[in-house]
Design a protein around this nucleic acid. Structure first.
Length: 430
RNA sequence: GCCGGGGUGGGGUAGGCGGUUAUCCUACGGGACUGUGGAUCCUGCGACUCGGGUUCGAAUCUCGGCCCCGGCCCCA
């Protein structure tokens, strides 16, 4: 074969697109139900937009290039930064809070593996300028709602408040560089590595008291009852009070928003310093190594791009991983075709009338296929069967003399004569 | 960027210590069957990922590229 698709990309065929559209529809309905409205940003942006947000190191994971006027351009690796840019360009004077959502593909030059592609889709949202625990709670509620509507029951939402650990850093006067190192290690979720990094031969910080608290903190995972443990642990560090209070309010609001399926997990972190409030991640254990299907949190990103200080809470689903999860979790139900009616003209003389019947059905939103290949009648039934059509309309001369056609139910094999004028109502009734 | 396993008709596969025409299933086309499907039979179409090497001879052995599947790194 001459051409193959580029590494890490995929073609989607009919059945798969059908499923993806269904998921997309559910997510759109959910987000719009919470009064979010859709935006769309370019597939490529100035390279600087992404390096400013994430550092020069990410260039090696970007699809970047110089355009014909020597502009440094990059395909977008995510949509948060473009949204922040859009906000600065267009939305600064719009009444807050602003709710927006997006769905589009992103590009990363990475090694493909399970749940990771070079072109992939993100479905995400931003709540801009509503920094409050209840704002964060509603965002999480919408995330939870999305998963429920997709019938994903094994998803686990892990929530943390980074203000807590930042309060500790402040208390112990930890410099930014060290903070960042610790955050990165916590983010990895590797407790052994953390222990080694704090207590080993070459510790990132020599503050024993801090180390001990950190090691205890990241072990705290559980439902809202672990709040007490956290409070006990932090009672003497008043720099953590504000964050802890916000955290408690968040949890209270979560209950009001009817979110019960969540885990408080002080081990969820982010390596980047613009996260200011809660962070959360959703895992689906069945997915294996790339089990994270969603990440989000509250951050102050816009200031980095030169805007006024404003906080935003958002998250994005890895759309392809959601699809993987649904595939993984689906119960064995057969892939039913959506073709409702197949029209089989018995002879060449009945073709034209068959097309008229087809158009009539389609005008009534009945998914209809009609033979266009001039196959023999027997083959037509075979084909209709392979397509999974529910009903076949047999258009033959004998019946047409009485202004009738035969409609065959492909499940039962039964067949009835129906007047041509009654076809639509006959199909709809069934 | 690193480590492993792979790549045979459209889809799924057998063969693999080199040796005639590369196996089977399925799909697709035609037919047995002049207007009734999922069956049967016949028949047609159609493949060794690419390039170099070893050899009289490579799907098979060897090296490299590309791609796929796992995993590591990374994950904004």
């Amino acid at each position: 074969m001459e051409f193959t698709k580029p590494r890490g990309t995929r073609d989607f065929l009919f059945d798969e697109m059908e499923k993806r559209k269904e998921v997309e529809k559910i997510l759109r309905n959910t987000f719009e139900n919470y009064a979010y409205r859709e935006i769309k940003t370019p597939l490529f942006e100035d390279l600087k937009l992404f390096t400013t947000k994430s550092g020069e190191e990410i260039v090696e994971q970007l699809y970047n290039f110089e355009d014909k006027s020597n502009r440094e351009i990059s395909l977008r690796p995510e949509i948060t930064a473009p949204v922040a840019r859009l906000y600065l360009n267009e939305l600064q004077k719009v009444a807050k809070p602003i709710k927006l959502y997006y769905f589009g593909s992103c590009f990363r030059y990475e090694r493909p593996q399970k749940g990771r592609f070079r072109q992939f889709w993100q479905f995400g949202c931003e709540l801009i300028g509503a920094k409050s625990p209840e704002g964060e709670a509603e965002v999480i509620a919408m995330c939870n709602d999305s998963l429920e509507r997709l019938s994903i029951k094994t998803a686990d939402i892990n929530i943390n408040h980074l203000g807590i650990i930042r309060g500790l850093f402040k208390h112990f006067n930890i410099d930014f560089e060290t903070q960042r190192k610790i955050m990165v290690i916590i983010d990895k979720g590797d407790k052994e590595l953390l222990r080694e990094s704090l207590n080993g031969n070459n510790p990132v910080t020599s503050n024993d008291e801090l180390n001990e608290i950190l090691l205890k903190l990241i072990d705290i995972i559980g439902d809202k009852n672990v709040l007490k443990d956290i409070e006990n642990l932090l009672s003497k560090y008043e720099e953590t009070n504000d964050a802890l209070n916000e955290f408690k309010q968040l949890i209270k609001s979560l209950e009001s928003f009817k979110v019960h399926n969540y885990t408080l997990n002080l081990g969820v972190a982010r390596g980047l310093d613009y996260y200011t409030g809660i962070v959360f991640e959703v895992y689906i254990p069945e997915l294996g190594t790339q089990k994270q299907v969603c990440g989000g949190g509250t951050y102050s990103l816009i200031k980095i791009f030169g805007g006024e200080e404003i906080e935003s809470t958002g998250f994005a689903f890895g759309f392809d991983r959601l699809m993987n999860a649904l595939e993984e979790l689906k119960d064995e139900k057969e892939n039913k075709s959506n073709i409702e009616v197949y029209i089989a003209p018995i002879s060449n003389d009945t073709r034209q009338i068959s097309f008229k019947i087809a158009q009539n059905l389609r005008e009534n939103n009945i998914i209809t296929e009609v033979d266009l290949s001039r196959k023999k009648f027997k083959k037509l039934l075979n084909h209709a069967n392979n397509l999974g059509a529910r009903k076949v309309i047999v258009v033959g001369e004998d019946e047409l003399k009485n202004n009738q056609v035969a409609i065959k139910n492909m499940d039962s094999g039964d067949q009835e004569l129906v007047n041509i004028d009654k076809i639509v109502s006959y199909i709809k009734e069934d």
